[in-house]
Design a protein around this nucleic acid. Structure first.
Lengths: 336, 336
DNA sequence: CTGAAAGCGCTAACAG
DNA sequence: CTGTTAGCGCTTTCAG
């Protein structure tokens, strides 16, 4: 098997120097139309394709970005990925995906690989940005943007929704529908990004409407399906009676609904449910889930766009609080 | 901002040559323990990280693979991706994701990018491998493996399930449960990979059990949710009465169930439903969907493993027909 | 308009 | 045991 043709081969075939070939390939000035034709003909004939690795070595730019997800296979991540990939591709960048599995070691290893591979920038999603990660990224000297997470300590551009407000809105909606006894299935209790703010929004909405907050009406999960089931089970067994429940993720909402249905509790007739995320499954289930929509694909697009601006020299970009919205489907009813 | 340290800097700092540094970094023989310590100390002190781009230029290996999906954000693709990513990472490879959007132009562009970036191999998923794609990949001279698709014309390693047989089994299961009037929601009518074989399996199972096949009992969709709804609508309106339906994808099965439920038709009391894929949503919905399980993550793993073997010099690897299995959940009941 | 030549950071002979 | 050196394929001065 013969080696692929290099710029040298093209130069030889066209009877010019490599510098000239490079010039015409980049549409720089400095050659006659005749030479241009010769070069192009040679490129065509040899089936020449530039080697991006060699180019990267010289330019110190690889036109590649790295994206870290806690779980690439989640619906949440893949919606994000689609947006990121889409604009990256548009702007001539490739994306390397990394599955951190929320594991510190693995994440650090990935960061190292991305550094060695000389990616031009990084998007970090959904997880708390540990100091260790921050240091590693800072050391590589490339821009980062955060998605669905945020750093208190450092100023790093991010794109996310206002979790507190969205949770407030979800809860308030239930109240406007006449519910007064509202339970919550929260995310991880210590999660500063998606756990605590959503709980606070819930609590605030209750209080603003003169309803007392009761710790006994909240159960905690980890955002995943099964934890929603378990939380619902706990609520049903131990909490004071309630007519509606706000879950901090669609998956938990769906898990909770499944458990309720198994027990002969109807949604929304007996209990209303509202979720959070608007994953594509939210509208696939029956009854379709009322939930807080996060524009994930759009958020991915934005993040990609911001990152590439930074890579291409923008001094700074502003973070974006993107707007969520409540989508009414069929799991919440007027009470009574 | 100062440039990151290179191997030269390390050499200077350690008072040795770059060759020696390279040796200790690669654990090759040929240096005293003392030099090793000096080098390691210098590496540590400078925070040196090798540049994989430079290495790639020399080695003609980038430790990167490209993966093409028709839709990165589908549950199907992301489950696959997780498996691929997992073993790739394990074996020291990075993965570049490409979303072809089932668009020929876009796919060709991607193939070109992957070539320029000198990826070491490619995994191509779920789509029919057009001749044009094949030629492009062949021209790059790197191995490919196919997932959930297969080439008739060329011998290319693949990993997939036996669609015909799986569909046969799904249908046969319904028959064993006592159903005789069984409808089908098929995939794209002309799809040689997932459309036709599944329809054939259905037909064959019917015939082997002495049940006539009736074209009027099959409606076609495109594997997506909404097409399942529409197909069910059509079946309900135009097909002869039926007590069970086999859908060629979980999404279509779920769409069909949603429509049925809206119409007051209960699943499985009035109509039994069986799907195909076993996406993670299959168990999230209520009632949980009985379906044909495809081990997607495992298939991704296998593909990744095969590809890397090929990259690392295995002359050839054998294709794998992985075993599906029917998972009984709650959407099929005995009839009558 | 065009070519020669100096690297980019690293690996791998080849000499000592 | 260790250093020198010739590239890998490409971009980019700097001279003509």
């Amino acid at each position: 098997m013969v080696n692929p043709p290099t710029i040298k081969d093209v130069a030889k075939a066209a009877g010019v120097s490599v510098a000239t070939v490079s010039r015409v390939l980049h549409n720089l000035a400095g050659y006659s139309d005749k030479t241009k034709q010769k070069v192009l003909a040679a490129v065509e004939e040899l089936g020449y394709q530039p080697n991006a690795i060699a180019r990267g070595l010289v330019n110190k730019r690889t036109q590649t970005i790295g994206v870290l997800f806690p779980d690439v296979s989640s619906s949440f991540s893949s919606d994000l990925l689609r947006g990121i990939e889409d604009v990256a591709n548009d702007k001539g960048f490739s994306v390397i995906v990394c599955n951190t599995a929320e594991d510190g070691k693995r994440t650090m290893k990935y960061l190292q690989v991305l550094r060695e591979k000389q990616v031009d920038g990084i998007v970090f999603t959904s997880e708390f940005l540990k100091e260790e990660y921050y240091e590693a990224i800072k050391a590589m000297g490339v821009p980062v943007v955060l998605v669905s997470t945020q750093s208190q300590k450092h100023v790093i551009p991010f794109v996310k929704v206002d979790d507190r407000q969205a949770a407030y809105q979800a809860t308030d909606y239930l109240i406007q529908k006449g519910h007064r006894q509202i339970a919550m299935i929260g995310g991880t209790k210590t999660d500063k990004i998606a756990g605590i703010p959503r709980l606070e929004g819930y609590r605030q909405a209750l209080e603003d409407n003169g309803i007392g907050f009761a710790e006994s009406r909240v159960a905690y999960g980890d955002f995943a399906l099964d934890s929603g089931r378990r939380a619902m089970e706990k609520l049903l067994a131990e909490a004071p009676p309630f007519t509606a429940v706000f879950a901090a993720s669609d998956e938990m909402a769906i898990g909770a609904m499944g458990l309720a249905l198994e027990r002969g509790i109807r949604v929304p007739e007996d209990i209303s449910v509202i979720g959070y995320d608007d994953l594509s499954i939210a509208r696939m289930i029956f009854p379709p889930l009322t939930t807080i929509h996060q524009p994930l694909t759009e958020m991915g697009r934005l993040a990609s766009d911001m990152l590439i601006s930074l890579i291409e020299g923008a001094g700074q970009v502003s973070s974006r609080i993107v707007s969520h919205r409540l989508v009414e489907r069929q799991t919440v009813r007027n009470w009574p």
